[in-house]
Design a protein around this nucleic acid. Structure first.
Lengths: 334, 334
DNA sequence: CTGAAAGCGCTTACAG
DNA sequence: CTGAAAGCGCTTACAG
């Protein structure tokens, strides 16, 4: 049984150098020799060791991925589809790196010991981990939904600011003037961005900025529910609500429904994400569609550039969203 | 800058053997020597190469995972949470292996070249891939939701048969006698199992077996919708429908709603999976809850046994489900 | 307790 | 076009 390049060399009656050349499709091997070696490789079902190759070349053809466990979030699997296609294209495999939360643990150590060529970071917020360390290490890194930059680190995210701003504009065109906003955590990058979008929309349209119309939750249905309950206490409740996630919107709709308001006649609601559920709410949710597939795909492609193109600039890629109009908004009649 | 064990040895004034012993916490090093070496390691921020270690030991501390891209399915992320905790416990990292669909491609080659110690296969059906090859290779393998077995291969899945049977029993207790079943693909393992559950339930309860009450779809909402439309054409439409997924149930409910039936008064519906959405349907869906976390967790643990316990028998682990009673079933009044 | 040496399975100048 | 040899960074008998 031939287990290594030396066995193959012996069987083919050549040197290991030659076998290596054949395996790697390098020139300077006569056609007949090449054919003979290939035959032996085939016969023996020889599989070169990726590990040994990695050791001598100092490359692993592996990208490390750090993920929050709280990634039980609904987008993850969609992003993975995008990752997969780009991985295939670039020839990398993805190593799902499990985080260890003991004090001596270090992202960088893990990466270095595993010899990953680049790192993908997804689902984390600014202060979750010691990202400075990894940026300093200059291991090529791409963050998803977190605007970290470094000499060899960049990010990809959806168009958050404009998307929310557009939602506000859309409601304004429908004659809404009392437009509330239910956001997620402000310590998350997307939370900050979307808030900025709301702020700009209100400002550019010359609408008054009411602190009472802004609620900060945590992207969940529950936080949307609570926010809407709050709005309904106001003397002048909003006639429309922009939400920072579809789940928030669903909570808003539920609270509104309990109070006897019908959507969209009495209240217009806009979500964010376009999750599966958004099509199935009653009424179907008007929302901002995120292109998760492209996010995944581009993350790997950019990482590949960072790794393999010597002076490639750190990326900061904003993926366009799509505004999906369904049934949860109507013209304001009051 | 110290990059390898030899540099450390030099700096500490010892042999590489000794450094290796210190790194691996092996005995036969004097305390003072050990301390000195550790100090140097610390000072130099030395990180041993996982790759080199893997090469000589023939082990990679890596588990390979094959996943369908169609894994954009909603459970995946929940299973990952379970995987993660077990990975941490066992010290393995997960290599997400991207499949290459060209004819020469082989799962086993990929695994062998990457030197993974075990393989997790998730989201595939019997004939999707050449699983025989991987079973023959005797690389330790655990399948999720696919009952493949081999000398070193086993599986973990939810209790599918009993769960559906119980659902049928539950409806029977609610005095339903015309109980339909909307299944997913029969070429999927879980499809077959759940069908068997339905069959047994009907049989044991002495209910007549009507082919018209059985619809085979593809786990989607659309297939549920179509199935229910069909049922309503029958002379004696069912009074209750057991579904092989929550999405199917949602489609059934939608079709029923369009025909003016109210749930649960006119029709009882039971789902499967207990996805997020199940709580939010109107009425909230009675369903079979799958314990995805445990599925993920046990998969790794069993794989770990398979890898590290010499004669560990191939596992066939059935994870219990929980029947979650919500609002979509009522006593049959007709 | 310590270290010299062989070896894991490859790649890569280099000489012929 | 071909091959001997050094080396990637470790571990592990083995001898002292």
């Amino acid at each position: 049984m031939a287990n290594n390049i030396r066995d193959i060399a012996k069987l083919a009656g050549v040197s290991v150098t030659t076998v290596s050349k054949v395996i790697n499709n390098l020139p300077n091997v006569s056609p007949s020799t090449r054919a003979r070696v290939q035959q032996v490789i085939q016969d023996q079902q020889f599989i070169p060791s990726h590990t040994a190759r990695g050791l001598v070349k100092g490359k692993s053809k592996t990208i490390g991925m750090f993920l929050t466990t709280s990634l039980a979030h609904p987008f993850f699997s969609k992003v993975v589809v995008g990752l997969e296609s780009a991985l295939k294209k670039t020839g990398y495999d993805l190593l799902y790196l499990t985080l260890d939360w003991n004090p001596e643990y270090s992202l960088v150590r893990h990466c270095l010991s595993r010899n990953v060529e680049g790192v993908l970071i997804f689902g984390f917020q600014e202060n979750d981990l010691n990202f400075e360390e990894i940026i300093q290490s200059e291991i090529p890194t791409v963050f998803i939904d977190l605007d970290m930059m470094g000499r060899r680190a960049g990010y990809v995210t959806s168009e958050n600011v404009e998307s929310i701003k557009n939602a506000v504009y859309y409601l304004h065109e429908l004659k809404h003037r009392k437009i509330a906003f239910v956001n997620g955590h402000l310590d998350s990058y997307v939370g900050k961005q979307r808030f900025e979008g709301y702020r700009r929309g209100i400002q550019e349209l010359g609408l008054p900025y009411f602190a009472e119309y802004i609620s900060i939750g945590d992207f969940t249905k529950e936080s949307g529910y609570a926010a809407m309950k709050g709005f309904m206490q106001l003397e002048e409740p909003p006639t429309a609500v922009v939400c920072s996630s579809d789940m928030i919107a669903i909570g808003v709709i539920e609270a509104a429904g309990e109070a006897g308001l019908s959507i969209p006649q009495d209240l217009s609601v806009i979500g964010f994400d376009d999750i599966e559920l958004a099509k199935h709410t009653i009424p179907a949710l008007t929302t901002v569609h995120q292109d998760f597939d492209t996010i995944g795909n581009q993350s790997i492609l950019l990482l590949n550039d960072l790794i393999n193109t010597p002076h490639s600039p750190p990326p900061a890629l904003i993926i366009p969203t799509k505004f999906v109009i369904r049934k949860s908004c109507a013209e304001c009649t009051r």
